[in-house]
Nucleic acid binder design. Structure first.
Lengths: 338, 338
DNA sequence: TTGTCGTTCTCCATCGTTGTAGTCTTCGGC
DNA sequence: GCCGAAGACTACAACGATGGAGAACGACAA
């Protein structure tokens, strides 16, 4: 069997509680005792049994990360950032994908057995909306990511979506583009990434005095490459003319950019493109894609930090907080002229 | 506090062991007792405490997946497949990234604290090589993925790399290409994905009677888009001429394809491309990329199944097994003529 | 010398579950 | 109507760690 506190205690000639105290840096331990214990731990290669610790202390040392889909580059990179931030603090991360956008399924994952062993949850909301905020008043500490729910019952970490897409749109306007496509809208959505990014787009047009044309707003349900390509194909087939594209995420932009080039148009000369998210791939597309860096590492850092605070604090003692990251325009070839 | 077996037992008017028996489908329970218990469980919304269960039974219900990097699309998709396969069997997956290719770091992760709470490990070997196989004789059940270690001390699930790249090379040869670049070789590597895929390439040339030219073998250390682009830039600068590229993974191919097109060459007319892995992105590149589908879902299914067998079995009672998936050539635009 | 206090350590109960070893029914066969 | 065996259930002791109460010890002031 494996080594327990008893084995270490016996070898060091102390009680198991003293060993436990050494491990937890309890202050009142004589230096020589501490050394004996540490030596015994090293000699036996003792590892605490996490199940036992979890049972006794009520903490598992793991946090859950609920995201839509790992195959989506944005979320894979977010998961990477969260794992880095969590490991720094000695936490494990249990990743859970929710797949499609089904409210019921999403709630089940949130409450389901797999999220039952974690001390807290980072939840990147997809299907739920503002009207469901009440459902999130669960007993497990929770920090929300994404842009579907604001002013919910708990902390919320996100990026300034409106500012980001305003920045993106202003960038294209500054290049002299006037007929700019907004790619990725969700009809009637007000909050949510799509709604907010559309707002940034319209705000930028307004500020520049460029008329808003409804036909330049392209609705796209999902935000994968495929959807961007399909939407662009349909848009071009309908004969709408445009000289710039603000895509609401990078995948949409990459899919659409491909279709535009296939049709013989040049990027950026005929159509300038800018995306959102700064996924790795944007550095290697043809042309490389300008985009908005949403501060993923910052999201992860703040979210994990806040979650940890909530885990340690008395339930209800921390009022809901909101954090918006600092964003940055990344200019690449898709908006750069030789 | 949360609901325990005691609460359920009290409500149902039975002992806690009977509740436990109902949960575990112990056969000798009267239907009406079972119903009472199930009703109590439902009413109280009882969830077993996994730490307690883990402590008592010695099983945590989690398996570890050690991969190089989630940001790498191949591994993100592999992780997705593994999670799907694991959830089907009621298991959690704890993902761990090892980052760079440092042997010591890799062994530390394998033995480290984070892999201590899992019942078994799926390990996609990166830095270790055949000579380190002995180091893997650890007590935790282990199944190896990837191509660095064959005939190790435990099960191994992989894809037929030689067949795959032979198939890829034959495909280009069948299009009449004679000067085919092998992109992604690792000098002096014999086993390992790079060594095996190079072998498939040479075998295909030999079988077709096409002379092997060393200058067409391009060494590339890492297999990211960036590296493919850089290597292709260097190759073109050196003046070597070629009409086809067998890239040892899709990312390399996508990076290289971009550089080739940047230089004004057409794909596939001037240079035909084929990759390896069938990552999602190959469906949306310009042009879409032909590739080898390595059977990721099959890898995940077999690996998780075998790992579970090892977890349940007596240590040492299962002899090491090897599994190779069925692969498939996926032809897309990068090797298709209008 | 005695009392007090802080330090250093030990003992024991406990977390929620499951394995083992029982106890008490029930039922069929003679 | 008695016996044995199987069926249905219970009691209790673990699993390995930690929190709390308190014991032993030495240092110091009165």
């Amino acid at each position: 069997m494996s080594i327990t506190l008893h084995d270490v205690a016996r070898l060091a000639g102390v009680s198991i509680k003293t060993v436990s105290n050494v491990i937890h840096d309890y202050p009142h331990i004589r230096p020589d005792t501490r050394e004996k214990v540490l030596a015994a731990i090293a000699e036996l290669d003792y590892r605490p049994n996490l199940s036992a610790r979890g049972l006794r202390s009520g903490r598992s040392g793991a946090i859950g990360l609920i995201i839509p889909d790992l195959r989506n580059a944005y979320f894979a990179e977010l998961a990477d950032a969260v794992m880095t931030a969590a490991h720094k603090r000695g936490l494990y991360v249990l990743i859970e994908q929710m797949g499609g956008a089904d409210k019921q399924a999403e709630l089940e994952i949130l409450r389901g057995p797999r999220m039952q062993m974690v001390d807290g949850i980072l939840y990147s909301v997809l299907a739920l909306g503002q009207e469901d905020a009440g459902l999130l008043d669960i007993s497990t500490p929770l920090v929300l990511l994404g842009d579907r729910i604001y002013n919910g019952p708990t902390d919320h970490v996100t990026m300034p979506n409106v500012d980001g897409s305003r920045l993106a749109t202003e960038h294209l306007l500054s290049l002299g583009r006037q007929r700019i496509l907004a790619l990725g809208a969700h009809e009637d959505e007000v909050i949510g990434s799509a709604g907010l990014r559309l707002r940034g787009y319209t705000e930028a047009l307004e500020a520049a005095g460029v008329p808003f044309r409804p036909e330049l707003v392209v609705n796209v349900g999902n935000w994968h490459r495929f959807d961007g390509a399909e939407a662009m194909r349909a848009t071009m087939a309908s004969g709408i003319s445009f000289d710039g594209v603000v895509a609401f995420n990078d995948s949409l932009a990459l899919g659409a950019m491909r279709v535009v080039q296939e049709a013989g148009l040049r990027v950026p000369d005929d159509v300038a493109f800018i995306g959102f998210d700064d996924i790795d791939e944007t550095r290697y597309s043809l042309p490389t894609l300008s985009t908005i860096d949403p501060g993923r590492a910052e999201i992860a850092e703040v979210a994990v930090g806040w979650l940890l605070e909530r885990i340690s604090a008395e339930p209800g003692s921390i009022a809901p907080r909101e954090h918006e990251t600092a964003i940055r325009l990344v200019q690449r070839e898709s908006t750069t002229f030789a």
